[in-house]
């Protein structure tokens, strides 16, 4: 990474703006908290001063290198300050600054503040702004930029495996290999596979069947989900994924009945005869039975969930049983 320009990036520690000749011409607007204000914060001096200068330059609609540095100074103290971030973006665009430089700076901030909405919104604004310029330079420039973005995403994912935004299926598979219970990774996989413009219908809800999805992709995803479910059958993520894939493909749930039965033995038998290794399998079996009109078996599965295997959710299982009666009447 090239060194960032010091007139744009970097905060000088311990320097007071009031004593800085660069800020001489600005009259800071001090914070006026009304009498008896609630939840008023006793701002540290440095923060209060920086905010006073920010108010002044924002009011004057100034866009300048010193404003950019001021925003960095405030972001260091309070990265959740959405107003400062938006003002920073306005400066970057008004000064026509190098987007790669700004992204390089942002990467450092992002890695220090993993759970922050602003870093992602700022990135979003930068990329949207940069893309038209980039397209003029041709496909290789776009590919290079995409590669650098992916490299950053790998870095941040290594820091926070829950923040999965990688555009690469392989990266998601790595996350699921590390922890098959990582639901964010499952969720993102679904997006990558089933919202891919190459083979999906735009505008469909996640639960609507999409005839554009090729059968071989459906087969692949069903097989993938099954393999992962076998590792931890009581993890719901894989089951939700499997069910989601079947619905997307417009396939009957019964197409996975054999697999689901691997986890439920002797349903309804006394004593040790009944062996359930996954409540989610039993739940899916209940749906499969209901799907083909076998109301008694569906009812048994739901009853056993409420009685024994998943008692905290008994209210829900009982509601599902009532639904079977209505379904039978219809």
């Amino acid at each position: 990474m090239a060194l960032l320009k010091p007139e744009l990036y970097g905060v000088r520690e311990g320097s007071r703006l009031a004593e800085d000749p660069e800020w001489e011409d600005v009259v800071p607007i001090a914070h006026q908290e009304p009498e008896g204000a609630l939840a008023a914060i006793a701002y540290p001096e440095e923060y209060a001063e920086a905010m006073a200068y920010l108010r002044a330059v924002m009011k004057a609609k100034e866009h300048s290198p010193r404003c950019l540095r001021l925003t960095e100074h405030i972001i260091n103290m309070n990265p959740a300050h959405y107003t400062v971030w938006l003002y920073r973006a306005a400066n970057v665009f008004a000064l026509n600054l190098s987007i790669p430089d700004e992204i390089a700076w942002l990467n450092g901030v992002a890695l220090r503040n993993l759970k922050n909405y602003q870093i992602w919104h700022h990135r979003h604004l930068l990329v949207e702004h940069y893309y038209p310029q980039l397209s003029l330079q041709g496909p290789s420039a776009i590919a290079e930029f995409a590669a650098s973005e992916q490299s950053f995403l790998r870095d941040i994912l290594a820091e926070d495996t829950k923040t999965t935004t990688s555009a690469e299926l392989a990266a998601i598979e790595t996350l699921l290999d590390d922890d098959v219970r990582n639901n964010s990774a499952w969720s993102h996989r679904f997006f990558l596979v089933f919202s891919n413009p190459a083979h999906s219908t735009p505008g469909l809800a996640a639960s609507e069947p999409d005839p554009k999805v090729p059968q071989e992709i459906v087969d692949r995803e069903v097989a993938y989900a099954m393999a992962k479910i076998r590792l931890a059958p009581q993890s719901q993520s894989g089951w939700n994924y499997l069910r989601g894939v079947l619905v997307k493909a417009g396939r009957k749930l019964a197409t996975v009945e054999g697999f689901t039965n691997e986890f439920v033995k002797g349903l309804g038998e006394d004593g040790e005869g009944e062996d359930v290794r996954s409540t989610h399998a039993l739940d899916l079996l209940a749906e499969i039975y209901a799907e083909r009109g076998d109301k008694d078996k569906a009812d048994l599965a739901l009853r056993r969930l409420g009685e024994k295997w998943d008692r905290i959710r008994v209210g829900y299982w009982e509601w599902r049983r009532k639904g079977l009666e209505i379904g039978a009447e219809a």
Binding site: L38, A39, A40, I41, A42, Y43, P44, Y47, M77, N78, P79, A80, H81, Y82, T83
Partner: peptide, 24 residues
Amino acid sequence: QCLGKLPGRFVAADASRPWFLYWC
């Protein structure tokens, strides 16, 4: 207490003060 004067470490909540009003 949360509705009263908050100490300096609450700077991180400087963009969320209205929430403190509602929550409390």
